[in-house]
Amino acid sequence: MMSPAKKLCLTLVLTTAPLLSFAEPIATIKTLSGDVTLIRDGETLSAKLGERVHEADRIITGDNGSIGLLFDDDTRVGAGPRSTLSLADFSYDANSQDGNLDVEVDNGTLSMIAGKLVENRPGAVKVRTPAAILAVRGTEFSVKVANSLDKDVAE
């Protein structure tokens, strides 16, 4: 039997582990053009081809900017100009292929080709917009969130 102290210790480890996994690298920047900014832990960085992006990163593309990400489960994401995304949540076990991905789109366009997460468990990937939550069951789709403040939408 486990002693109460051991139990407490295990509980603490189990409950704090998800917090410690915060800010893990989860995807690689594979395409990039124009101005693209990353916001990580309150710091503003400019995105660079080949660099890793982290869980909880926020990505903002400029008027001429676009970015393509390859996640570790092979999910591919492209974002067009004037887009704001947050990589809210990602977990992936390469052996069991289980986990989940949550991407928030506040504005702009996003295209996604889901990878092993969805292959393993339909619905494991979610895209959140101001108006809806989209659960991906298979596999390629696009989302546009157009704010009326956007010049090309206000007409």
Binding site: K30, S33, S111, K144
Partner: peptide, 10 residues
């Protein structure tokens, strides 16, 4: 509607 984000897909 989505040409730019599709072109950006790796």
């Amino acid at each position: 509607t989505f040409g730019d984000s599709i072109s950006a897909l790796p």
